[in-house]
Amino acid sequence: MIEITDLTKAYDSVPVLQKINLTINDGDIYGLVGTSGVGKSTLLRCINGLEPYDSGSLKADGVEIASLDKKALREYRKNIGMIFQSFSLIDRISVFSNVAMPMECWKYSKNEIRQRVEYLLELVGLKDRMKARPTELSGGQKQRVAIARALTMNPRYILSDESTSALDPKTTKNILGLLREINQTLGITIVVVTHEMHVVQELCNNISIMEGGVLTASGAVRDIFLQKPAPLTRLMGEEAMDIPAAGITLAISMDEKAVEGNLFYHISRLLQEEFTLLSGDFSANRTAGSSNIVINIAEADFPDLERFMEDKSISYRLLQKGGFQ
């Protein structure tokens, strides 16, 4: 578990992190989202001790990172694998040697290294490219090698710094699938820094949105995308929605599992198509398997709809005119 309280950091009196508070639970996939330069990468580097912080506390499994000396810090970093946007592989040595490097640095025997590296390359599906140079691989393959390298020391955490930002959509999907698999089968906690919304929606359970060194919104991905707080709409470059004065406007999280068939269809039949669709975000959210819509209905229709939704335990949120309830 990573517990961050009132974490503050400045570069030459320019604040980069201001009173950051967040907790990342074991087994979670946690997203740190924001535009570039808001401090999310710095926060990530504070977690593995690559960046010192000025004040506040950052505890990993109960240990304060700032209290570790150089040797203890190296020891601590064994628990943490890191993957980067630019893959960060050593181009002049083979895929095998790249993955083997952390274990070489920690002086494991040749035999142990061979077994572990072969197992990991099998896991990421690149065992047949073991002897290749990273330069011979595609972007997605390089990131797989980097993931295998991050896993060599059997870490408790993986920190991902924009690891899919340089990849095409299909490769991104593959890599996200691999990360999810690692999270589920190996139980590794993953912290993801990204500016890509679809990465968050496909991968993360919880997120924090960062703006100018401050966490402006935190919560479960499902709730955040349902509630669409101002930081999220700013991040997505959306104008705040114009909510009609008349009728009732509500945001509905359309959980595919809640009802048989298409929920949208059920709602439109119930309301006899007498409603306005204000916004619809149908991109799959893997944690909820849902999409979000915002509709405006006549006040008279609300009790029916409310009963229907309570019946099926569908989450929804009433939006007041010009703001959130």
Binding site: N48, R77, I80, G81, M82, Q85, S86, M101, P102, L159
Partner: peptide, 12 residues
């Protein structure tokens, strides 16, 4: 970043 990666797995 390659150097940072090495630091991140605890290389001296």
């Amino acid at each position: 970043q390659v150097i940072e990666a090495a630091q991140s797995f605890g290389a001296s």
